[in-house]
Design a protein around this nucleic acid. Structure first.
Lengths: 114, 114
DNA sequence: TCTTCATTTGAACATTTGTTCATATGTTAA
DNA sequence: TTAACATATGAACAAATGTTCAAATGAAGA
């Protein structure tokens, strides 16, 4: 039951704070979102889709990257349900699928600009 | 001047969206914040400091990691001005230094729990 | 001054991550 | 069916990242 064996400076404060830390699973999910947005390629993709839906090759042009690279990143964003897609013939259109992510980005944009 | 040489599906949409993309520098700063929070160790540290200030070795106990590992991560968070510290004798207390980050975390916690 | 203790630092190492290239899938139009 | 095109996928490679270990710093008390 000892949280701090012998090393701990302030056992009471430690216990208090440990109480407030979210569950490991929640932390993991939060990390996943931040990690998803914490890459220049992916963030730029999401920023582009914030404006309107786009097909893969347009995103590639907007982001100045290979179709393949974009496709790989879109798969990650899709797996995380940050982005969704719809097919129209040969073309697949991607768009944002998560309002919370939109808020996070707006908030961070605000932060950067002040 | 050609944004899309020959590859582009919908040149008009591409131009429209390119207009809306933030400057490279802003994107870089946004990425840095998300990247800082996109690591389990660092996020847990920040979550702990959200509750109250702590010294390095208490954070280590709370997070179940080495003093050294925590110190390395704190340096990153300090460099990014997410966290600040004050010395009291031998002990150095760390605390949150950025309200925007607090908001980001609360928003992502909300996201995870709904 | 010497010792102890909290924290920091640097180098080394293992892991993770993003991009590239070549190839595969699947849809459309001929 | 075949050719052309948009997208997806897998393997390989290079680069970035987090932790560990050992050693250094700097403050307090003996």
């Amino acid at each position: 039951m000892d949280i701090c064996a012998e090393k701990c400076i302030n056992e009471k404060k430690v216990r208090e704070t440990v109480e407030t830390i979210p569950q490991q699973e929640d932390i993991g999910q939060m990390v996943d979102i931040f990690k998803a947005l914490g890459d220049p390629s992916r963030l730029k993709i999401v920023l582009a889709l914030l404006n309107q839906e786009h097909c893969v090759c347009d995103i590639a042009v907007i982001c100045g990257q290979t179709d393949s690279a974009i496709s790989h990143q879109l798969r990650i964003l899709r797996t995380m349900k940050i982005v969704k897609n719809r097919r129209e013939g040969k073309i697949i259109y991607y768009s944002i699928d998560d309002d919370h992510v939109i808020s996070l980005i707006h908030m961070s944009l605000n932060h950067v600009r002040h």
